[in-house]
């Protein structure tokens, strides 16, 4: 994986499964289907003659603009997934994500309170899971989505073991 400018140098990032793109696509499709159909409602009502106010061009323009934005985000999804990475260091876990708005997170093992693994309906058939770390700070929001189930289990055990070895007070 290409090391981005914001990251600490000399880190071998582990990437999440490419199959995670499918999960993101499913979410994208569902979300935008609902949004576009809701936004098209005025157009339908105007064409059916129930409403008079929004002119037809406006009724078309709003869902069209939304669709354009959605397509742009669709193009970005594979790159966004590729940009998610994590690295286990001696004393902390690094998680990075984002293309335009990048974020590199450092979570010391000793600060972990607990580790969650969750599997969604789309993730399950693909054999993926999402791992989430919790510290005493709510803002941490350390999440690694799209991990293969075996890797998720390994990481969880690894993190728990390291957390126990290095645990610190609050």
């Amino acid at each position: 994986m290409r090391t981005e400018a914001i990251d600490p140098p000399g880190i071998d990032w582990l990437r999440v499964s490419p199959k995670y793109v499918t999960v993101r696509l499913a979410g994208w499709a569902l979300g935008n289907l609902i949004a576009v159909s809701l936004l098209s409602l005025p157009l339908v009502l105007v064409l059916a003659g129930a409403w008079t106010w929004p002119p037809v061009w406006l009724g078309i323009a709003i869902p069209a603009a939304w669709l354009l934005l959605a397509l742009w985000r669709l193009v970005l999804i594979p790159r966004q997934v590729r940009s998610i990475g994590y690295a286990e260091r001696e004393d902390d876990l690094l998680i990075r994500r984002g293309i335009f708005f990048q974020r590199t997170l450092v979570v010391p093992y000793g600060r972990m309170q607990y580790v969650d693994i969750s599997v969604g309906p789309v993730e399950r058939p693909l054999g993926l899971c999402t791992l989430k770390l919790h510290t005493a700070a709510a803002a941490t929001s350390a999440e690694i989505p799209g991990l293969p189930a075996s890797e998720g289990a390994r990481l969880r055990e690894q993190l728990s073991a390291r957390g126990e070895a290095r645990l610190a007070g609050l």
């Binding site: 708005f101 600060r111 510290t135 700070a137």
Partner: peptide, 23 residues
Amino acid sequence: TQSMALQQGPLARRFRVADLVLH
């Protein structure tokens, strides 16, 4: 310190600056 994150948006990248957030 619980955890830390380095954050950078597109504008900040133009100026080669970044924000550091402590949780």
